[in-house]
């Protein structure tokens, strides 16, 4: 004879298990649907609007020397095997030039000395990796806005694309930001980190610092800055290496 309470419990347990596995496979199926992921991304995009409304042009928190991480972890690309890059690294970037072009009135070629001669900004900020860890370090370099002003933006310019010397999984690294972040006073091209010239592991000779966004926006090994009116047509069209290859969000303020 079956105890009705027991059978009810069995039904509930079986139902729970069934619902659980259905939920899991259902989530994976939803995750495979471009339409559903597009919807998630659209809702997620509300964070950018909300955050920009709240944050305005507020500065990221700047710390004191005593707050710095004893060791600043280097991750992602920690070297570039490009022969031209390695030659420049060998000569201390003496003949290297940062190229600024695209939708500008006056394309620029700037040597490392020229970048060092521009007015400098130094900031001790927190670097947040999308993985979850944080490190506090000191960055120094000219403001991106100074360089963009010297190049003179054409009215159609909307994005700054940063082309890098490193490859990840055989593909060139690149990143992009819009003009709101490009002209933010803490957005700098750092050639100096923790009071020493930028090391290769941290992206020598230049690393972009966009202090209010996550680590993957902080492009290392910056070789060229292109001003464009759109992100489409550039590599995968999503505005960055991780955006194209893994579907990370272009806006990384959260």
């Amino acid at each position: 004879m079956t105890d009705p309470a027991l059978s009810r419990r069995r039904v509930l347990a079986a139902g729970g298990l069934g619902a659980g596995s259905l939920l899991l496979s259902g989530c994976d199926r939803l995750n495979a649907s471009p339409a559903f992921k597009g919807l998630l991304a659209d809702v997620g995009q509300l964070h950018m609007r909300a955050q920009r409304l709240i944050t305005g042009d507020a500065l990221a928190r700047e710390f004191g020397e005593a707050d710095m991480s004893p060791v600043f972890r280097a991750n992602g690309s920690v070297r570039s095997d490009d022969p031209i890059y390695r030659a420049h690294l060998g000569t201390g970037f003496a003949d290297w030039r940062l190229r600024v072009g695209g939708l500008v009135r006056k394309p620029l070629e700037l040597s490392l000395d020229a970048l060092k001669a521009l007015p400098q900004r130094s900031q001790i900020t927190r670097h947040d990796c999308v993985e979850g860890w944080s490190a506090i370090g000191k960055w120094q370099g000219p403001k991106l806005s100074t360089i963009l002003a010297a190049a003179g933006l054409l009215p159609e310019a909307r994005y700054a694309i940063f082309h890098c010397a490193d490859l990840l999984e055989g593909k060139p690294y690149y990143e992009s930001i819009d003009l709101i972040d490009a002209f933010h006073p803490q957005t700098i091209l750092a050639w100096r980190m923790n009071d020493a010239p930028l090391s290769e592991a941290h992206g020598a000779p230049l690393r972009l610092r966009v202090e209010r966004q996550l680590g993957y926006k902080q492009a290392k090994f910056v070789m060229r800055i292109d001003l464009t009116d759109t992100l489409s047509g550039i590599f995968g069209g999503k505005g960055g290496y991780w955006e194209d290859s893994r579907g990370y969000q272009w806006y990384a303020g959260i």
């Binding site: 989530c27 998630l40 964070h47 999308v130 993985e131 893994r246």
Partner: peptide, 20 residues
């Protein structure tokens, strides 16, 4: 986990959308 295979990017999509 969601998804059941490793994907930080996709997990963030779910997490940040459902956060609302």
């Amino acid at each position: 986990t969601i998804p059941s295979y490793y994907s930080l990017a996709d997990a963030r999509l779910w997490h940040l959308a459902f956060a609302w």
